[in-house]
Simulated assay, not measured.
Amino acid sequence: MHSHTIIIICGPTAVGKTAFAIQLARALQTEIISADSRQCYKEMNIGVAKPSAEELAEVRHWFINSHNIHEEVNAGIFEQYALHAAATIFENHTTAVMVGGTGLYIKAFCEGMDEFPAINPLIRQQIIVDYETKGLEFLQKQIAELDPYFWKVAEQQNPQRLIRALEVFISTGKSVTTFRKGDKKKRPFNIIKIGLELPRAQLNEQINNRVDKMMEEGLLAEASALYKYKSLNALQTVGYKELFDYLDNQCSLKEAEEKIKINTRHYAKRQMTWFKKDNTISWYNPHNVSAKDVLSSINC
Rank of each mutant, 00 (worst) to 15 (best):
C251D: 06
W151F: 15
I9T: 13
P199T: 09
R180P: 02
I69S: 06
I22G: 07
A87F: 01
H93C: 12
W283A: 09
Q156W: 01
E54G: 07
F179E: 11
R210E: 01
C110V: 07
Q140L: 04
F189M: 08
I298M: 08
T178N: 08
A53Y: 12
Y284I: 12
Y267F: 12
Q271M: 13
V59N: 06
A21E: 04
A25Q: 04
E111L: 10
E72P: 02
E71Q: 10
S296E: 15
Q206G: 04
F150Q: 02
L219R: 00
N45F: 00
E79V: 06
A82I: 05
D147T: 09
K185Q: 15
Y246Q: 03
S66I: 13
S3V: 14
I46T: 04
E216Q: 01
D183G: 05
V294H: 04
N233I: 12
N279F: 07
Q142E: 15
A75N: 11
N263Y: 04
E222F: 01
E79F: 06
T13C: 12
I33G: 09
A223H: 02
T280M: 05
T102E: 02
G173Q: 09
M44T: 13
K17M: 13
I64M: 03
I170M: 03
I262T: 15
K276T: 10
K228E: 14
T95I: 15
N288S: 01
T264E: 08
T5H: 11
V59E: 10
I281H: 07
M272H: 06
E197Q: 07
A118I: 11
T30Y: 00
Q271W: 01
V176P: 04
N288V: 05
T177W: 08
I119W: 05
Q206W: 13
L226A: 06
F109L: 07
E255G: 09
Q250G: 13
R270T: 14
V153A: 12
V129Q: 11
Y227C: 11
P199L: 14
L203N: 11
F109K: 03
L162T: 15
M113T: 14
K259P: 00
I46L: 01
V153P: 03
A53M: 10
F90Q: 10
Y267C: 05
A268R: 13
T264Q: 06
E31G: 07
N285L: 06
E145K: 10
H70V: 02
N204E: 13
K241A: 12
S37L: 02
L56S: 01
Y41V: 12
K50F: 03
D130A: 12
F63T: 00
T177D: 07
K174Q: 14
F20H: 10
G76M: 14
E132M: 09
A234W: 00
D212R: 00
K254W: 01
G11C: 05
V168W: 11
D114Y: 06
T280W: 01
K241R: 06
W274L: 02
T30Q: 10
M215Q: 00
N68D: 13
E145Q: 14
E31P: 03
N285T: 08
M44F: 00
E155K: 05
Y81E: 11
M1S: 14
H287G: 05
P117I: 15
Q140K: 15
Q202I: 08
M1Y: 00
G76D: 15
A75G: 03
N92C: 08
I281S: 12
H61T: 04
W283Q: 08
N65Y: 11
M113P: 02
T273M: 11
T5D: 04
Q126V: 10
